[in-house]
Design a protein around this nucleic acid. Structure first.
Lengths: 242, 242
DNA sequence: TAGTTAACACCTAGGTGGAAACTT
DNA sequence: AAGTTTCCACCTAGGTGTTAACTA
């Protein structure tokens, strides 16, 4: 995932659907992003792999993205797909825009937090998320990603360009193609290859970002409003992601 | 003020600052727009005046714009200038976008409402604002305006074009000027007139919209958190606007 | 050399009044 | 004739990867 000094959105954005909330209870929904391991990585071009390149850099100030619809009732949250597309990542450790601060060339795992309102009174973008009764965390292994300041891999670049509306200007059909190549590719029978690029189409794609497709929408199930506790959380998580 | 079927922002937008709230109490801030009188108007070009042209059209479904930061603590509200720039006006009585529905060619008065959270549980964009203890309404006479679907008056048009960033394309310095006029106006000594147009500069400006300048920021004072009642409201209002 | 930064062209998304077509 | 609607060029605001310059 690209990170910049000014802050960069994730693409694709994390999107989840939640069930099992108490419709009349108020909740905050928040997201943070935690290191997967204690390593720094480098991308080895000839083998198209990320390899360990030493230990992780020193920790950065923890940041929390509080979903802008927070707080809202369980009913409201459950009725919609919850999108984190406004969340931004930065490598600026002195960031004062409330963006999530990460190290480049490290592996990270996003987490979604569901926080009952009465447990979230001290919720803040610059404080760690509280834990305990009334607070649940969810994470999906397929959403692990590696941070970069510039793409290391042409397939990832291609995928982003083809999928992100804001990158339309770099698509093959755009002005980017030059002369002969443009003409050749304008023939339909020559085109089926990369225009519809998905992860399934590229065996052996390096895990700069793993299974971005799955980001498009995950379901979170809470057993039921009464058993809303860290324990039932892990059971639920296990059954959905194991 | 322009109103359209799809919904049009007000320009300038209503902006207020509030003091006297209980910093730790939660409030909704909302806006509605009420008829000034029971009349329909027409613009008489030769006299540059709005004149009564019969009785008002039949009432439209009442709508409320709930400020998107709602609910928030008194502290949060008092720290910022509260802007209603996302609010939209429409003449579509069947509108389903939650916009405020008005009749064209009528006079209206925006009202700002401060609603203590425990009094606003049934707050809805399609229901009238509750009244009683814990709910206060504020309105400023200089924010009265007349609705139109097309400007009736070249001075208003000019004012909007000069002040609204989104209308920059119609400014004199843009491509709009034609030949000679452009050349003439490019001389600095010929320019001081309308480029810095304000209401003060135009004596006798017709009240299609009255004192837009004052929209830029009004202060609302609540006597103090303890006397938060409709009665103290009207006293405060009187002292600030009388 | 490997990684980062800043400026940039090219997009999406949506807010302006103008002008002509349309309605009543 | 008077008012409304639709389409449009022209903006603001901001999200993309590219590129070349920069940095350690």
């Amino acid at each position: 995932m690209i990170i910049t000094k000014a802050g960069r959105r994730m693409f694709p954005a994390m999107r989840v659907k939640i069930s099992g909330l108490d419709p009349h209870q108020q909740y905050y929904i928040a997201m943070d992003i935690v290191p997967v391991d204690n390593k720094r990585y480098r991308y080895v071009y000839h083998s198209s792999k990320w390899m360990v390149a030493g230990n992780a850099d020193s920790p950065v100030p923890p940041r929390v993205y509080i979903h802008p619809d927070s707080p809202a009732s369980g009913e409201t949250w459950m009725r919609q797909v919850i999108s984190f597309d406004k969340l931004k990542l930065t490598n600026n450790e002195l960031d004062d825009q409330g963006h999530i601060i990460l190290h480049s060339m490290h592996k990270y795992q996003p987490r979604v937090h569901v926080i009952r309102k009465d447990c979230g009174d001290d919720l803040s973008p610059i404080k760690p998320i509280p834990s305990g009764e009334g607070v649940k965390a969810f994470s999906f292994p397929e959403t692990v990603f590696t941070t970069v300041t510039a793409y290391q891999n042409q397939q990832i670049t291609r995928l982003k360009i083809d999928r992100n509306p804001f990158a339309k200007g770099f698509r093959d059909s755009g002005r980017n193609r030059m002369g002969l190549e443009a003409l050749v590719e304008s023939y339909a029978f020559w085109r089926p290859s990369l225009r519809t690029l998905t992860f399934e189409d590229i065996p052996g794609i390096p895990k700069q970002e793993y299974a971005a497709r799955s980001f498009r929408g995950r379901d979170i199930f809470l057993a039921n409003p009464d058993s809303f506790s860290p324990h039932s959380l892990s059971r639920n998580l296990g059954s959905k992601d194991g």
